Simulated assay, not measured.
Amino acid sequence: MPEVLVVDDSKVMREMVVACLRPYPDSRFTQASSGLEAIEQLSLKSYDLLVLDLNMPDIGGIEVVEFVRGQDHLRSLPIIIVTTRGDEASRERALSAGASLFMTKPFTPDSIQGAARSLLEKSPSQDAKPQDEASRG
């Protein structure tokens, strides 16, 4: 049963992401409204997927990605960045920090479901190569 942590300072956006991913079989969702809360949640239990915004009031998404990649037990956690920042610098920074995939808002339910499915169903032995959702075709 996939455990998904959805992090965004907008409650509406968190609920939208959860609604889009709810059709994924047997998923369970935890929500966090800040980067600090995300780090707290990640220290309390294991997750199979992290969906993360970049723009947050306390600890930003890039810093959360860097935290995750710096922890041995979290290093392979797939991370989807979902953000309003569509500029190349933000995309490059997120992927360089260790995000698995970068998507811009607005997104379609199919695009985020496909992204989640591809990351959740990836074999653990495969290398997590960063991707830009726009380049997925």
Rank of each mutant, 00 (worst) to 15 (best):
1 M>L: 09
1 M>P: 14
2 P>Q: 08
2 P>N: 09
3 E>A: 15
4 V>H: 01
5 L>Q: 02
5 L>W: 02
6 V>F: 03
6 V>T: 05
7 V>M: 06
7 V>H: 02
8 D>M: 11
9 D>V: 06
9 D>F: 06
10 S>A: 12
10 S>G: 05
11 K>V: 13
13 M>I: 15
15 E>K: 13
17 V>H: 03
18 V>W: 03
18 V>T: 12
20 C>V: 02
22 R>C: 00
23 P>C: 06
23 P>Y: 07
27 S>N: 05
29 F>D: 07
34 S>R: 10
34 S>K: 10
37 E>G: 03
38 A>Q: 09
39 I>V: 15
39 I>S: 05
40 E>L: 09
40 E>A: 13
42 L>C: 07
42 L>R: 04
43 S>E: 15
47 Y>H: 11
48 D>G: 06
49 L>Y: 04
50 L>M: 08
51 V>I: 13
51 V>S: 04
51 V>T: 14
52 L>C: 05
53 D>T: 01
53 D>F: 00
54 L>Y: 01
55 N>R: 12
55 N>W: 05
56 M>T: 08
56 M>N: 08
57 P>I: 04
57 P>F: 03
57 P>G: 12
58 D>T: 15
58 D>S: 13
60 G>C: 12
60 G>H: 12
62 I>E: 03
62 I>K: 01
63 E>R: 11
63 E>L: 02
65 V>D: 00
68 V>E: 08
68 V>T: 12
71 Q>L: 07
71 Q>G: 03
72 D>N: 11
75 R>V: 13
75 R>K: 15
75 R>W: 04
81 I>D: 00
81 I>G: 01
81 I>M: 12
83 T>A: 07
83 T>W: 03
85 R>L: 14
86 G>C: 10
86 G>L: 09
87 D>K: 05
90 S>H: 13
91 R>L: 14
91 R>D: 00
92 E>I: 11
92 E>V: 13
92 E>S: 10
92 E>N: 11
92 E>G: 00
92 E>K: 13
94 A>L: 04
95 L>G: 10
97 A>P: 06
97 A>T: 09
97 A>F: 09
97 A>K: 08
98 G>V: 07
98 G>H: 06
98 G>K: 07
98 G>I: 06
98 G>W: 05
99 A>H: 06
100 S>A: 14
100 S>Q: 08
100 S>M: 08
101 L>T: 02
105 K>Q: 12
106 P>L: 10
108 T>E: 14
111 S>G: 04
111 S>M: 10
112 I>C: 08
112 I>Y: 03
114 G>R: 13
117 R>I: 05
119 L>N: 10
119 L>P: 10
119 L>R: 08
121 E>D: 13
122 K>M: 15
125 S>H: 12
125 S>I: 10
127 D>V: 14
128 A>Q: 11
128 A>D: 15
131 Q>E: 15
137 G>E: 11
